[in-house]
């Protein structure tokens, strides 16, 4: 488990109090970084979410592009998930979580 997975996993388990948190085995390489998902269930929710950890730095360009999200959906996200939870790991000690959904259809 690399640092960012560990960081987000611990954050989910021990800060956000998620349940049943596990690192999904599938992964791929993207511009020298390992892209891998974490799956788990948020507290007081019935539905599982899959979480994509991405690093963010104050002084470097972000890795996050549409192509990366496309590739993640294509390669890692199974049918049952209609969205991913993007976990942005800041270099200021914070992790923030956002849903990413495809398309404009469900307004």
């Amino acid at each position: 488990m690399d640092e960012k997975l560990e960081l987000v996993r611990n954050n989910l388990v021990h800060y956000q109090q998620w349940e049943d948190v596990r690192v999904s085995p599938a992964s791929f390489q993207w511009e020298g970084e390992n892209i891998q998902l974490i799956i788990g269930k948020p507290s007081n929710s019935e539905r599982e979410e899959c979480v994509l950890p991405v690093e963010y730095s104050q002084y470097q360009e972000s890795l996050l592009t549409t192509n990366l999200i496309d590739a993640t959906f294509t390669n890692l996200v199974s049918e049952e998930f209609e969205r991913i939870v993007l976990a942005i790991i800041g270099d200021d000690g914070t992790v923030v979580f956002y849903y990413i959904t495809r398309g404009t259809s469900t307004i």
Partner: peptide
């Protein structure tokens, strides 16, 4: 080529050029 990620309702005309992602705060973190 790799496109499964397009919303089906978009017409053939535009689907190659523009794709959309929606962003919402999860409410935590």
């Amino acid at each position: 080529s790799d496109d499964t990620s397009i919303d089906r309702r978009q017409s053939h005309d535009t689907q190659n050029h523009v794709r959309f992602y929606r962003l919402e705060w999860t409410g935590f973190g």
